[in-house]
Structures are given as structure tokens and as C-alpha cells.
């Protein structure tokens, strides 16, 4: 039987999510942070589809949510890049570290 168990998809998604978290937390550059977020969203999408595929066969909710997530991810990427460019214009840098006006 050459079927792949559900949990393997889940493990894959978990790893991808962890990698995304690492990127968000550790990278200096704002664009890299954005990439990390995209990876996390993809991990979530894998989970959605895996559960839709294995868990709730007759429902289209999973794929539908994947559609929404992809859409919103695209919108988010556009807005995030706009913000990054705006910050870059003010600070001449795209490093998240350098934008710390909220320091107490």
C-alpha cells in the first residue's frame, strides 16, 4: 500500500511552520520576515488540504479556505512590501531592528 499517511503531511506542515517561525523571529531584513510569514501560511494550507483530503471527504471547506488564505496572503504581501518600501524611504534601511520607535 503506497498511500501516504495523514500524519506525514502534518509533520511536513509542522516543519515548514517551524522554519517560518524561525525566519520571522531571527531574520534582520523585513522582506525575509515576510518570507517567513509566507512559509507559515503555506504550512497552514498543507494542513487544510490534508485534513480535507483525509478527514472530511465530502466537505469543500478545506479547499475553500485555502483559496481565501492564498488570496489574503497575496494582499498581505502587497501591503507589507508597500510598508517596507515606506519604512525604507524614511530610514534608508529595511532592517526591522532599526525601526524601534516604540522603545519604552
Amino acid at each position: 500500500m503506497n498511500s501516504i499517511p495523514l500524519v506525514h503531511f502534518l509533520y511536513l506542515a509542522a516543519m515548514l511552520f517551524g522554519v517560518g517561525v524561525f525566519g520571522v523571529l531571527a531574520r534582520k531584513n523585513a522582506i525575509s520576515v515576510l518570507m517567513g510569514i509566507e512559509l507559515m501560511l503555506n504550512a497552514v494550507n498543507i494542513n487544510f488540504l490534508a485534513f480535507a483530503r483525509y478527514w472530511n471527504w465530502n466537505s469543500l471547506t478545506g479547499p475553500v479556505f485555502v483559496v481565501f488564505v492564498i488570496t489574503i496572503a497575496a494582499a498581505e504581501a502587497a501591503v507589507a512590501l508597500a510598508i517596507i518600501i515606506s519604512i525604507y524611504r524614511h530610514l534608508r534601511t529595511a532592517n526591522v531592528d532599526d525601526a524601534h520607535y516604540l522603545r519604552g
Binding site: L102, R103, G104
Partner: peptide, 21 residues
């Protein structure tokens, strides 16, 4: 106290994210 707690307000967004995760 404010000075003490303001240490947590680093202004670094990733610090906050680290705290969340």
C-alpha cells in the same frame, strides 16, 4: 517601576513576536 517595565518595551517587533511564540 515604569523604568523597570519599560525594559520590556524594546521597540523591536521581533522581540514581541518572540515573546508571543
Amino acid at each position: 517601576m515604569g523604568g523597570l517595565f519599560s525594559l520590556t518595551q524594546t521597540g523591536y517587533v521581533q522581540n514581541y513576536a518572540l515573546v508571543v511564540f
